[in-house]
């Protein structure tokens, strides 16, 4: 039972991460390839605040998310004018910078040794109780993320966001301040990714750079594309499938040493098939091409 609860929690965290990327990728139509960077900023900020300054994770969560949001805003200011492919490259580069930052700033982040002993939100003595608490907490944050995403997207503002995805120039010609809207969506997307990162850190209690590398960004992109961009259900399904799928490999008895490379190959294969056969994802409606 503990294991199932753990999977539920991890899936929930990735649902939040995928939903946040979906705002940028699915609704705004910008191929952000460095989303793990915001996840990392949230995780490291609140972990370091808790470890070094004794700041409660409850407060660190929002400081971490705000740092992520500010980074998203800065990235938005720097990249709003870039065409899709260059935007993809720039965000990919940003992902690399943050990754190598946490890897190399050993004085602060301890680099590859990682940060152990990150405090949890509430210290439980009983593992089961702790898992139940985290299930409820994560579920709550998933629901908040869904609620706010819907609120933002099913509105005249959300219509403008989607119009930029379809044709930025036409949106500009109709008087939409596309630059401002893009920066807002980058900021909000980064904020929720930061929330997810901080939740992750204060649940797992140990983080190191490997959880925030380029593959991690690609995994989140795959979640959104697999499930279906530009829908709420898509990223949820995509996150669930891609978190639970490796567990199934383990379940059917494939050893970890084989499962890890096999998984990456299958991800790559999935991406190719999807892009060719079903560009709108499993339940999506917006087509990538």
């Amino acid at each position: 039972m503990e294991y199932e609860l753990h999977l539920f929690i991890i899936t929930g965290i990735f649902v939040i991460l995928a939903l946040s990327l979906n705002l940028v990728l699915g609704y705004l139509g910008q191929p952000a390839l460095g989303h793990a960077a915001f996840f990392a900023i949230g995780a490291y900020t609140s972990s370091l605040l808790a470890l070094n300054a004794g700041i409660s994770p409850w407060i660190g969560l929002f400081i971490g998310a705000s740092f992520a949001a500010i980074s998203g805003m800065i990235i938005g200011h720097l990249t709003f004018h870039l065409k899709e492919d260059y935007f993809g490259l720039a965000t990919f580069g940003f992902g690399l910078i943050i990754y190598s930052g946490i890897n190399n700033l050993t004085d602060v982040t301890r680099g590859p040794m990682g940060l152990p002993g990150i405090p949890q939100f509430i210290a439980f003595t009983d593992l089961y109780n702790s898992l139940i608490f985290y299930c409820i907490l994560i579920l709550l944050f998933v629901l908040i993320t869904i609620f706010l995403t819907r609120r933002i997207i099913y509105s005249p503002f959300g219509r403008v966001v989607q119009s930029i995805r379809d044709d930025e120039l036409a949106a500009e010609a109709l008087g939409k301040d596309t630059r401002q809207v893009k920066i807002m969506i980058f900021t909000i997307g980064a904020f929720f990714a930061g929330i997810a990162g901080s939740l992750y850190a204060h649940y797992i209690t140990f983080i190191d750079p490997s959880s925030f590398n380029v593959m991690e960004s690609i995994l989140v992109v795959l979640m959104v594309i697999l499930g279906g961009m530009g829908t709420i259900g898509g990223p949820i399904i995509g996150a669930a499938v891609l978190i639970l799928f490796p567990e199934m490999l383990r379940f059917i008895g494939i050893p970890d040493a084989v499962a890890a490379p096999l998984r990456q190959m299958i991800y790559g294969f999935l991406l190719v098939i999807l892009i060719i056969k079903r560009p709108q994802g499993l339940v999506g409606k917006y087509k990538l091409w």
Binding site: R159, Q162, S163, D166, D167, L169, A170, L174, Y286, K287
Partner: peptide
């Protein structure tokens, strides 16, 4: 012509 291809005709109108 530049329209919003993946939005409804009514949404196109509302954007204008």
């Amino acid at each position: 012509i530049r329209l919003f291809h993946q939005l409804s005709v009514l949404d196109n109108m509302l954007l204008a």
